[in-house]
Amino acid sequence: MNRNHKRTLVAVAAALGLASVAGLIAGNRVSAAGSGSITGTVKLSGSPPHMKGIDMSKDPYCVKQHENNPAKMENVVVGADGGLQNVVLYISEGLSGPEASATPSEEPVVDQHNCMYVPHVVAMDVNQKYKVTTTDQTTHNIHPLPAPGTGNIGWNKSQPAGAPPIETTWKAPEAISVKCNIHPWMHGWHVVVKGPYAISDASGTYTIKNLPPGSYTVTAWHEEYGTQTQKVTVAAGQPGKADFTFKAK
């Protein structure tokens, strides 16, 4: 506890230091970058597929965590008004200069909670640090398996209860499937993109921030339904808008 606390302090101090240095170097360009954004909603048309329940009986701990809220698959999560959750939206064309190469300093977190990945899909920039944590009283292993030849190197590490977070990065853009082999139903995605990105929330809405004015191609990625793209123009002081609709199979 104490050690974690110290570590956090050090991390915060380091982040502050870095941020101020970055600010000095980048000057006003950074403030300009934050001005524009793209928002929109992702929807699923048609009836969403049936998500099977998950039988966790091999690990009584997991069973106990789900006594009152049965677990089910999270491959397709649809909100009340058809909003499609867990879609990663990113700029696939139109970025140049510092916005394309800047690495965000905030760290996305995937938690292993009740023998599921929370969130199911996490997105990150190339070389952006992110964390895998556990709040379960059982041991998990995290086994991302990128495709060969992408430049990303797979790994496989266990996290016993109480172990410190795993902090790491990916080198190349790729949607990487992640599994826990000890609990084979545990499955998630670590989606690595280049440049600013967003993930649709429970109602399917999203906002990609930190964009300078310009015209862009936005790509929406979903693990089951693949990708869609749209061209969007962001003007100064006026966010771009792009809604996506995926068709249920």
Binding site: T139, Q159, A163
Partner: peptide
Amino acid sequence: PNGAPGDVMTPE
């Protein structure tokens, strides 16, 4: 550092 993060031994 990999096998025993935070001094706790991992299964592997």
